[in-house]
Deep mutational scan, measured.
Amino acid sequence: GKMTGIVKWFNADKGFGFITPDDGSKDVFVHFSAIQNDGYKSLDEGQKVSFTIESGAKGPAAGNVTSL
């Protein structure tokens, strides 16, 4: 299901970062391709987001990332 969290950091040049889930679980990798907006796909440190957990090739990653 949907989770919420805070963006820990995001490197716009490399197109990835990490989200710290509100439930205290392990930080989740986020790739820019998972960001659900029409414009420039980037996130800001400290931004609140909702997301799902998808299993990627390198382990769990955030999917369906939407800013709240």
Rank of each mutant, 00 (worst) to 15 (best):
V49C: 04
L43V: 06
V65W: 00
S25H: 07
G15N: 03
K58R: 10
S55P: 15
F51D: 00
S67M: 13
G15T: 02
F18E: 03
S55G: 15
A12F: 12
L68K: 06
G39V: 14
D38M: 08
A61G: 06
T52S: 15
D44Y: 14
G17V: 01
K41R: 13
M3C: 05
K8Y: 04
A57N: 08
H31P: 04
D27R: 05
F51M: 04
I35A: 03
F16K: 02
V65M: 02
T52H: 08
Q47D: 09
K8D: 02
A61E: 15
F18G: 02
D38Y: 15
G15L: 03
W9D: 02
T4M: 10
N11I: 06
N64Q: 10
P21H: 03
I53N: 05
I53P: 05
V7L: 03
S25Y: 08
H31K: 03
K58L: 15
S33G: 06
G46Y: 07
V7C: 04
T52R: 06
N37I: 14
S50M: 15
D23A: 07
G17R: 00
K14R: 11
A34Y: 04
K48R: 07
V7N: 01
F29C: 02
K58E: 11
F29E: 02
F32V: 11
V30K: 00
G24H: 10
I6A: 07
T4C: 05
M3S: 11
Q36P: 06
A57F: 13
G1R: 06
T66Q: 15
F10M: 02
I53F: 08
S42R: 12
V7G: 01
A34W: 03
V7T: 04
S55L: 15
D44F: 13
Y40N: 11
S42T: 15
Q36N: 12
K58H: 13
K26T: 11
D22E: 10
D44G: 15
F16R: 02
L43W: 06
K2E: 07
F29Y: 12
V49R: 00
V65Y: 01
G56D: 10
D23N: 14
L43T: 02
G56M: 09
D23V: 09
F18L: 04
G56L: 07
V49Q: 00
S25V: 08
G59F: 10
A61I: 14
V30N: 00
A34N: 12
A61V: 14
F10V: 04
P60H: 10
G5N: 00
A12L: 13
K8E: 02
N11Q: 10
S67G: 13
A34M: 06
G63M: 12
G15R: 06
F32Y: 11
V30Y: 04
L43M: 06
K41E: 07
V7R: 00
H31L: 06
S25F: 08
N37L: 13
H31D: 03
G15F: 03
S50T: 11
T4F: 14
S50G: 09
M3F: 13
L68V: 08
F18Q: 03
G17F: 01
S42C: 05
S55Y: 14
V30M: 07
G59Q: 06
G15A: 03
T52W: 11
G59V: 05
V7H: 00
A62Y: 01
G1V: 14
E45T: 15
V28R: 02
K8F: 04
T20L: 07
S42L: 10
T66A: 11
N37C: 05
T52A: 06
F29K: 02
I6F: 11
S50H: 09
F10C: 02
D44K: 13
A57L: 14
L43S: 01
A12Q: 12
V30I: 07
K41L: 10
N37W: 10
I35V: 10
D23W: 06
G5E: 00
I53Q: 05
S33D: 05
I19Y: 00
T66Y: 09
I53H: 05
K48L: 09
G56N: 14
S67F: 15
A57W: 13
D13T: 11
Q47R: 07
V30F: 15
P60D: 07
I53L: 12
L43K: 01
T20Y: 09
A34C: 04
A62C: 04
K41F: 08
N37R: 06
T52V: 15
S50F: 06
I19H: 00
H31R: 04
K14H: 11
G24K: 07
G5Q: 00
K41V: 11
Q36R: 11
Y40C: 05
D23Y: 08
I35D: 02
F18R: 03
G17Q: 00
L43N: 01
D13F: 15
I6R: 09
K2Y: 09
P60I: 11
I53E: 03
Q36S: 07
V7F: 02
F51R: 00
F51Y: 11
T20I: 12
K8S: 08
D22S: 13
F10N: 01
Q36I: 08
E54C: 04
E45G: 12
D13S: 13
G63C: 05
K2I: 15
N64D: 14
I6V: 15
F10A: 02
D27N: 08
Q47H: 07
E54H: 07
E45Q: 12
K48P: 12
S33I: 05
H31Q: 04
G39N: 14
F18S: 03
G17H: 00
G46W: 05
K2A: 11
G56A: 12
H31Y: 07
D22P: 03
A62F: 01
A61D: 04
K14T: 04
D27S: 07
D38R: 03
T52N: 09
D27K: 06
M3K: 13
A57E: 09
P21A: 06
V30S: 01
F18I: 06
T66E: 12
L43R: 01
N37Y: 12
A34E: 09
Q36D: 13
P60A: 08
K2V: 15
G39E: 13
S55M: 11
G24M: 08
T4S: 10
G59N: 09
V30T: 03
T20N: 07
F51H: 01
F10Q: 01
K26V: 12
D38C: 05
N64P: 02
F29W: 09
A62V: 03
S25R: 10
V65G: 01
A62E: 01
G63T: 08
N64S: 11
G59C: 04
T20D: 03
M3P: 06
G1C: 05
D27I: 08
F18P: 00
I6Y: 14
G5A: 02
G1N: 15
P60K: 07
I35N: 03
K58S: 13
M3L: 13
Q36G: 08
E54M: 15
T52Y: 13
F32H: 13
D22T: 11
G63Q: 10
V49H: 01
E45V: 08
G24N: 08
A12S: 14
E54P: 02
T66H: 06
Q47M: 12
G15Y: 03
F16T: 03
G24I: 04
I19D: 00
H31M: 05
A12C: 04
L68Y: 13
A34D: 10
F32W: 13
N37S: 09
T4Y: 15
W9T: 03
V49E: 00
A34F: 04
G39T: 07
G46S: 06
